[in-house]
Design a protein around this nucleic acid. Structure first.
Lengths: 230, 230
DNA sequence: CACGCCCAACTGGTCCAACCAGGTATGCTG
DNA sequence: CAGCATACCTGGTTGGACCAGTTGGGCGTG
């Protein structure tokens, strides 16, 4: 079974993205002309253009009709979606720092999500939350249920920014597997803490929910700061 | 002076994006085939493909070779970058709720940014912060200086997730101009509060910095919750 | 009649070749 | 030397052809 043919334009995209995110193509530098790139990668110019369109959409380059395509300073202009692509570049900017950043940010907005959810959650949402605490199963099964729990919380707090930010952060941890699995294991297994959080939300006590969410999410923060031994 | 020719693929992209974000193209629905789209929009199929590539990169659609291109549930899978594009669709999902969500999220991560910056800021960063407090000038000039101040704070706290999230949030407020200008006016003008925040960061007192940042950022939260009169 | 396989007709992916349109640098002209 | 016309480089768009997976219906077999 052939290992799934990858689109040519995707290969070009990945290559150029790695060049930019790793810093080999510095901010402000000009990308090679499309015709040159198509020659370099031995692909058609359309494939190059599709790759460049994706780079443009990702905020990594800016294209000027007539002029050259230039690399943007992604740390100053890139959106949170970039985060998921950083673990893929081993060198500068990537690596464990990304995972720490994600856990730190997740804890911060998670606390506020819990607080808002306590104030805004509907009875239906609370029922859905209760259905997702506890229960046995493997670590992976628990992780899936736990992630669903947070997704319900995020929707309950009725803030589209948190909802999308949560998606971006989760996409990043998914991209950083299996390292992220180990980091979150302790948090995922803390079933009692899940239940207490949900009950605080159900009780409508925002501060208590925030406090309990903070304690829960801090578990992963601890484990990402002190690298686990083998 | 002709109003700046917009690329054809961008027009197609905007059209399809609006269809999806507004819900007229529901999640799970199939996009029309590329050949049909190119006929509908009266453009070449390559232009359609470039537009679809951007939709794909934005997480709005998933493409299957041989099968049809389908609309994704952007609330469940889209990244924070989408936020900046929501104000553009007037109907469902867009509008003032987006601005409220941004201000809410900004306050949340802003507090943590201030706290971390107090713990991690270098002397050089503190000097840069002090250079960006106070001073006269127009509201716009003050807004620019104030935004730079936050950018320095974000960099100081050494968290790439916060840095990119901040970019996404700012891109959203920029897209929502001029409504966002009115919302942030009070916060921008609070020069004394800026100075106090910076001094708390300079003093390395994380909790004090967090408290002051919370007070400062809450100003905009208040003004977005009670719509200003004309 | 029921089941299963195969092929035809879709879908997206890639290529070639040419030309349009905006920007820049060259170099000629005054 | 200053200023402008132009050739050439850049990305933007088009047309058409063909490759490569998917799907579903029709045909043959049991």
């Amino acid at each position: 079974m052939p290992p799934t043919r990858r689109p040519v334009s995707e290969a070009v995209f990945n290559e150029l993205r790695a060049e930019i995110l790793s810093g080999r193509l510095a901010a402000g530098a000009a990308l090679a002309p499309e015709r040159t790139l198509s020659e370099t990668f031995a692909v058609n110019r359309h494939a190059v253009r599709e790759a460049v369109k994706r780079l443009q959409q990702a905020g990594l380059v800016e294209v000027h009709h007539g002029g050259s395509t230039r690399v943007r300073d992604w740390r100053a202009t890139g959106g949170l979606d970039l985060l998921a692509q950083l673990p893929l570049v081993g060198e500068a900017g990537g690596g464990p720092d990304v995972l720490r950043a994600v856990v730190e940010a997740r804890r911060c907005i998670g606390v506020d999500i819990a607080r808002l959810a306590a104030l805004r959650a509907s009875p239906e949402a609370i029922a859905e939350l209760r259905a997702r605490v506890g229960g046995g199963g493997s670590l992976d099964a628990a992780a899936i249920r736990y992630e669903e729990l947070w997704r319900v919380l995020v929707r309950a707090c009725d803030n589209v920014a948190y909802e999308l930010a949560y998606n971006s952060l989760m996409a990043t941890t998914d991209a950083a597997l299996p390292a992220s699995r180990a980091v979150f294991a302790d948090e995922v297994r803390a079933t009692d803490a899940h239940r207490e959080l949900v009950e605080a939300v159900a009780g409508g006590d925002g501060e208590l929910a925030a406090q309990r969410a903070g304690a829960l999410l801090s578990r992963s923060l601890v484990s990402v700061l002190e690298p686990a031994d083998a």
